[in-house]
Design a protein around this nucleic acid. Structure first.
Length: 631
RNA sequence: GCCCGAAUAGCUCAGCUGGUUAGAGCACUUGACUGUUAAUCAGGGGGUCGCUGGUUCGAGUCCAGCUUCGGGCGCCA
């Protein structure tokens, strides 16, 4: 938002919002009293004056090192800003007053070591105008400030020639048809491809991630920087293109941008080794460059769909009267059967405190006891369920299991609704309703990305979601499922027997061969399910459910909770759990206990399914799995 | 944790039962052509064939170990 105003503004904008310690140090050595933050000049500036240009004039920074940042830093800039009649707004962004910005100054002698192609150092020396305020001319302004003024002067010169102002729009807005042809706009993004035409123009496909399609920027050779810069653009370069939005003369897009200026903000230092090329990459390779893969079509699309799914989930619960509860990330509950946990500790591993008996003294640890990253917010959220009736969690979850599959992450996001006064049937109904709602939403709101998945990733990406939405879920009792599997005549690696948990191969048969659409399997043997699941009247099964979907298997696991204290205690004893650790959880059954139910939905598994991905590591920005936590 | 497979240019891959100077496409670069659509055409640069050892007259190719990546399974969401 600031950027949009910044480009429209004709005076430079000083952005004091970000901080980099190393930057600060480097600057402190070279220019005393320059301490902080960023100075960013935004504008439609044909002469390539930008933050780096300023730093060049200032001589305050190692230009080479900062050529790609177009940002500089300075406390003196702040002083100078105020002295020069500018001010800081409430966001910490500085702005020069127009009058003072006319101050120009003498640029330094061009420096041969300055090799950034983005910068053209003016060769002519400009003297300050005689009408400039004396205090501005005589004060030893920081070099930084002089840089601002110089670029501001140039911007203002441009303004006097043309009253037209560019408004910054996203590529999505530009392509949407919402803006009339002839609109003067700026778009900002990263180059996907560049094609030159000897007719005297270049075509730049520019993407800013706001939608699947890039916008085609038509850059004529009349641009001042055409030969120097435009024709050197390669994939990944950051660019601000300004000009007129016009109906495209070529095929393939409705609108394009007829550029009157193409400003290069960030070059790709070595186009040959830039990992993201306009070609198909393997997913394995892209995982190795997870920090750059969002620039690909696929990961851009996955990211937008992931966002849309998250918003749809929140919207579903919000519209249905659920309250979002933020359960703790750090827990001191003992393992609750959901898996291995990551320990959270501030103890010095090289010098562990010991008890008299030689054991590690966790009383000396940060929380005074063992602490772990949560494996589920369910136990905590039950308390809020028994007060707010309909609640859900949506947050990160951690499992320290050594799982090496395409369906497991050590860190993932989970959605866990918990519904008071609900039984297992209601639980299953909500699960079905939720999934169908979010699938419908993503088909409605991200047709461009979904079309890409159907085209390049998984042919049935769209059709299977439509089928999912239109078919009622099948409901099968575990006992019946076992009978079906036994009768199937299929040879399974793990033989089916009542009392075993269903294996992946069994689930796949049920879903993909026997039913062909999503299945809810209910009422599992009590021995194989968690202690908090409600014991059925038969005494040998619990009111648990798994939602199985074609292509991914188990996407949801849930249960009606055991609301009877005596039964819960017996179950905990059976599982060898110490009730002392669960006093607070038992309290829910002591004070106003009611039947309630809930389930857990793995968010990344949802993303995998919707996008037609094969590996869950591609459904989260920076996947964490055993042996890997790069980036 | 168990089983299986793979590793050749910046990327995607070919390279047959071991045989002379290891190839293609993309990317980069030079030129031609062009309102182009991951443009096209012609030329050029670019390789410790994952690492270590072994078999052999000869190893990208066969063997062993290691490393890394992938697939399947278990645990689960």
């Amino acid at each position: 938002m600031e950027h949009e105003r910044g480009v429209q503004a004709l005076a430079p904008v000083v952005d004091f919002s970000a901080l980099d310690k190393r930057q600060r140090l480097a600057i402190d050595e070279n220019a005393d009293a320059i301490e902080i933050e960023h100075a960013v000049v935004l504008g439609d500036v044909p002469g390539q004056i930008d933050g780096v240009g300023i730093s060049r004039a200032a001589g305050a920074l190692d230009a080479e090192a900062h050529a790609d940042r177009r940002r500089i830093v300075g406390k003196k800039a702040l002083h100078a800003l105020k002295r020069g009649g500018g001010e800081l707004d409430r966001h910490g962004h500085g702005r020069l007053a127009e009058g003072t910005a006319r101050q120009s100054l003498a640029p330094r002698v061009p420096d041969r070591s300055w090799r950034s192609p983005a910068i053209q150092v003016p060769s002519r020396i400009q003297m300050p105008p005689p009408d400039a305020p004396t205090r501005l001319r005589n004060t030893p302004l920081s070099a930084m400030m002089r840089g601002f003024q110089r670029s501001a002067w140039r911007i203002n010169s441009l303004e006097s020639r043309s009253k037209q102002r560019m408004s910054v729009v996203s590529v999505k807005q530009a392509l949407s048809g919402a803006l009339p042809a002839g609109s003067r706009i700026s778009v900002r993004g990263w180059v996907r491809t560049r094609r030159d035409s000897k007719a005297g123009l270049s075509f730049i496909n520019l993407s800013d991630g706001s939608c699947f399609d890039p916008i085609q920027v038509v850059a004529p050779d009349s641009l001042a920087n055409y030969a120097d810069e435009v024709q050197r653009l390669s994939a990944g370069c950051a660019v601000i293109a300004s000009g007129e939005l016009v109906a495209s003369q070529g095929k393939g897009q409705g609108f394009e941008l007829q550029a009157s200026s193409v400003e290069v903000l960030g070059w790709v230092e070595d186009p040959e080794t830039y990992p993201i090329q306009p070609k198909a990459h393997s997913l394995e390779f892209l995982r190795e460059v997870a920090h750059l893969r969002p620039r690909t079509n696929l990961f851009g699309a996955v990211s937008r769909v992931r966002h849309t799914l998250a918003m749809a989930i929140h919207r579903y619960f919000d519209q249905n009267g659920y309250c979002w509860i933020n359960t703790p990330i750090i827990t001191t509950s003992d393992a609750e059967g959901a898996g291995q946990m990551f320990r959270v500790s501030t103890l010095d591993l090289m010098n562990l405190p010991r008890t008299d008996k030689g054991a590690i003294d966790t009383r000396k640890d940060f929380f005074g006891k063992d602490a772990f990253l949560t494996v589920s917010g369910q136990l905590n959220v039950e308390g809020y369920c028994l007060a707010l009736s309909k609640v859900y969690t949506f947050g990160p979850t951690f499992r320290a299991e050594n799982s090496n599959t395409a369906r497991h992450l050590a860190e993932f996001w989970m959605i866990e609704p918990e519904i008071a006064f609900a039984d297992l049937a209601e639980n299953a109904r909500v699960a079905e309703d939720l999934l169908k709602f979010v699938f419908r939403t993503v088909l409605d709101e991200r047709p461009d990305d979904m079309a890409f998945f159907a085209d390049r990733v998984e042919k049935s990406a769209i059709s299977r979601l439509e089928a999912f939405i239109n078919a009622p879920f099948e409901r099968i009792d575990y006992t019946d499922a076992v009978a079906i599997l036994k009768k199937s005549g299929k040879k399974f690696e793990f033989p089916v027997e009542w009392g075993i948990d269903l294996q992946t191969e069994h689930e796949r048969y049920l879903v993909e061969e026997h039913v062909g659409r999503p299945v809810v399997v209910t009422n599992y043997p009590e021995k194989i399910k968690a202690f908090y699941m409600r014991l059925n009247d038969d005494g040998r099964t619990v009111a648990a459910m798994d939602v199985l979907a074609p292509g991914i298997g188990e996407i949801i696991g849930g249960a009606q909770r055991e609301e009877r204290l005596d039964v819960l205690d017996a179950r905990m004893q059976q599982f060898g759990l110490d009730p002392a650790h669960y006093q607070w959880y038992r309290d829910f059954r002591r004070y106003g206990s009611v039947p309630h139910a809930g389930f857990g939905l793995g968010f990344e598994r949802l993303v995998v399914y919707v996008c037609g991905l094969a590996n869950i590591r591609d459904a989260i920005p920076y996947p964490r799995v055993p042996g890997h936590a790069e980036f």
